[in-house]
Amino acid sequence: MVDGFVDTPRFRLIEAPPLARFVLRAPDAALKAAGKAYGLALPEGLNQGASHGERGKPGARVALHLGPDEWWLIVPEAEGPEVAAALEAALASHPHSLVEVSHRQVGFVLEGEGAAALLNAGCPLDFSEQAFPPGMATRSLFHRVGLMIWRMAPGLFRLEIDRTLAPYFVTALAEAAKDHS
């Protein structure tokens, strides 16, 4: 969808490979057990992201704390079933909701020194490193569509957009890129 679409010396948009995605809803009491089963401690602070391993490679784990009791868990596609089974087993004694949403969203990586400025073409958040430090993850808007923004490093963003709205987002980002040439 995006190859070569938004690609300048200052920023580059890359579509993520197919991934398994889950929404975990659970009270704080379940966090420890969930983190243990998941192989990555779930970030406790709201609007925080955590990860280990390389994205899309075996063993990689992503956990994004996006609502007070809401975590998004993203793993390589093939590991989805075992991760789900491990979490369900570990959380059996905790009230919780684990729902697979692998195909609900499309993932992107936006990288480059101009990435934050490009996002500001449609996203009203302050991307200074004080206001939006690396490690922060939150939902917001890009023009008319919602998106999840996780800042992994100053010039490295992971984005997740609803599947049907991704074409709009990519087109809008490409249009905005004209203003940054």
Binding site: N47, L66, G67, T138
Partner: peptide
């Protein structure tokens, strides 16, 4: 009442 609909959802 407000809802942070494009944020934490609360």
């Amino acid at each position: 009442r407000w809802r942070h609909v494009h944020g934490c959802g609360r």
